[in-house]
């Protein structure tokens, strides 16, 4: 059972006040902002480790990002994954979800045979939830999103998918791609032994030229999506609370309704 987990480094939610948006590109300025592993991706790592503990095999984590994303890969190594690869190149900068999933797909081709690809259901910064499904398309794999439980039987998986007010049970042959929710597990902390081992590990960094890819499909050039505008919605106005004698309050309310013509 070989699993590849794709993770993203996102700004630390406890340091949100430090996050700024570039007014030119309408994208996050990530430099200097402490990063964490996208929380849902931590669930994906945990699930991969649990499957490994049950079924054997190995777990590789893959991330695309600036060099500081190496910290996140190191944390995954400390949690117990077997290998990590960082995709980092100026040519990858500005990738939208299409270019990102394409680049990840090409890297996975280089990593080699696998049974399962896991990702978090979405990243907490962009919140698109598109990279997982996009990746499945590029690799021509069956995909199951929003998993809260994965069971592996022989060459099949049985997955419980979280829906709005129910869950759905889906079966898929392997290899497959699954994105997970936080309900699936409680991610472990790294152990001290893991930390010390991860610190010494050399993480390979692959650039565009290390991958069999079409340069027109990566980075800004390969990204049809442009963020045109980004804004913080104004919070709705607070309602007015009427107080006093019931009869007066009712009169006032009726007057207000007539005045505003709300009915």
């Amino acid at each position: 059972m070989n699993t590849i987990v794709c993770i993203k480094q996102v700004p630390d939610t406890e340091e949100l006040q430090k996050v700024k948006i570039d007014p030119q590109t309408n994208t996050l300025i990530r430099e200097g902002v402490p990063g964490i592993i996208n929380p849902f991706d931590e669930n994906a790592i945990e699930e991969a480790l649990r499957l490994k503990e049950k079924k054997g095999g190995n777990v590789t984590v893959l991330s695309m990002g600036p060099s500081q994303a190496e910290e996140s890969l190191r944390k995954a190594l400390a949690m117990g994954v077997d290998g990590a690869v960082l995709l980092s190149d100026r040519l990858f900068a500005g990738s939208d979800t299409l270019a990102t999933s394409y680049t990840l797909a090409m890297a996975i081709k280089r990593i080699g045979p696998f049974d399962l690809i896991l990702l978090g259901k979405q990243a907490i910064d962009g919140d698109t939830a598109q990279v997982g499904p996009g990746l499945a398309e590029w690799l021509n794999l069956p995909q199951v999103t929003y998993a809260r439980k994965i069971e592996v039987n022989e060459n099949k998986i049985r997955v419980e998918r979280v829906l709005e007010d129910a869950f759905e049970v889906v079966e898929s042959p392997l290899p497959a791609l699954v994105t997970v929710t936080k309900d699936i597990n409680e991610p472990r902390y790294p152990s001290l032994r893991g930390l010390l081992r991860a610190k010494a590990e050399k993480i390979p960094i692959w650039a565009a030229e290390d991958l069999p890819l079409d340069k027109r499909k990566i980075g800004l050039e390969g990204s049809p999506t442009q963020v045109v505008k980004i804004f913080i919605p104004k919070p709705p106005k607070r309602g007015e609370i009427l107080s006093g004698e019931i009869s007066q309050v009712v009169d006032k309310l009726i007057l207000e309704i007539e005045k505003r013509r709300t009915i």
């Binding site: 472990r188 902390y189 790294p190 152990s191 001290l192 032994r193 010390l196």
Partner: peptide, 20 residues
């Protein structure tokens, strides 16, 4: 259990006895 999972009980013990 958490302290054990983190390997904290073995911090001062030599590696040959399972410590760090």
């Amino acid at each position: 259990k958490k302290l054990a999972e983190l390997d904290l009980f073995g911090v001062t013990l030599p590696r040959e006895y399972g410590g760090l």
